[in-house]
Amino acid sequence: MNDRKPPRGETAPHGDGKAKSPRLGREIQIRIGDKLRSMYDDIVDEGVPDRFASLLRQFDEPSSNNRE
């Protein structure tokens, strides 16, 4: 569910007051979004490491005995 807000050519009123042309800003913002997600997805694509899968299994509801 990527509810990404469309990047607008925001000028930067805060900070150092530099103005950017909307067209220049938007292209860079698209690149930023792509890079960010690409970096992020690299990790997501690794899936679930064994250590977490076995951690979760330890807490499963026991089928027969009653342990805490």
């Binding site: 990047p7 530099k18 800003g25 860079i28």
Partner: peptide, 11 residues
């Protein structure tokens, strides 16, 4: 702010 700052840095 993050986007603008990154845009500046990458620009």
């Amino acid at each position: 702010r993050a986007r603008n700052r990154l845009a500046e840095l990458m620009d």
